[in-house]
Simulated scan of single mutants.
Amino acid sequence: MITLVDAAGAASVLARHREVTVLCHVRPDADALGSSAGLARALRADGVVVHHSFDPGAVPDPLRVIPGTDRVVSIDEVPEHDGLVVALDCASPDRVGDWDRL
């Protein structure tokens, strides 16, 4: 299910989940990894279990300077869970890659 919400709505949805998968688009650039790493960090600071990934999950060397990218896991390593999946910096679901099982 895809739900579009404003910032207050997004904060409300995030606050209701204790486990979240944060994804960004395939072949991520700095803004995709930066925004997803920032959200992952904020959620972890609130005690949320976070799975930060993208398809396939190998952070390009030049982007490893972005704080939090050391915690990115391969999309194959993200466990199925009853929590929330958030995709950032994606204009359409197909930009996330192979994430159907989530």
Score class of each variant (00 low, 15 high):
L84V: 06
P67E: 09
V72L: 01
G83N: 12
D76C: 05
L84R: 09
V5Q: 12
D94G: 07
H17C: 11
A8S: 14
T21E: 05
V49S: 13
P67D: 11
R27S: 14
E80L: 14
D82E: 15
R27I: 01
T69P: 00
D31N: 11
A11P: 02
R71T: 13
D55F: 07
E80Y: 07
V20K: 08
M1P: 11
V86R: 07
V78E: 08
L14V: 08
R95N: 09
P62Y: 10
R101V: 13
P28F: 01
P79H: 08
D29F: 05
V50H: 01
A87P: 02
R27P: 02
C24H: 07
D98K: 13
P28M: 07
V13E: 14
D61P: 10
A40M: 09
E77W: 00
A7L: 14
H81A: 06
D46Y: 00
H52D: 09
P93F: 10
M1S: 14
A42H: 12
A15K: 11
S92C: 11
D70W: 03
D100G: 15
D76E: 15
L39N: 05
V85W: 03
G83D: 12
H81F: 06
D98L: 14
G68A: 01
L102G: 05
A15F: 05
V26F: 02
S35T: 14
V86F: 01
R27W: 10
V65Y: 00
V5K: 12
V86C: 04
H81N: 06
S92W: 03
V85P: 01
A87H: 09
V48Q: 03
A42M: 12
L63G: 04
V86P: 00
T69K: 00
H51C: 01
S92N: 12
V96I: 15
E19A: 12
L84G: 08
G34N: 09
G83C: 11
D98R: 15
V20F: 04
D46G: 11
A91I: 01
A37Q: 09
R95P: 02
E80T: 15
P79I: 07
D46P: 02
D29M: 07
E80I: 10
D46V: 00
A45L: 13
D61E: 13
D89L: 07
R71D: 12
E77Y: 01
G38V: 03
D46T: 11
A37I: 02
S92R: 15
C90E: 05
T3W: 12
C90K: 06
A40G: 11
G57P: 01
S12L: 14
H25Q: 13
S92I: 01
D29G: 15
P79D: 06
V85A: 13
V96M: 14
R18W: 05
P60A: 04
A11C: 10
T21P: 02
R16V: 02
H52Y: 10
A30M: 00
D6G: 15
L4E: 14
V85H: 07
V72N: 03
E19C: 12
L43E: 03
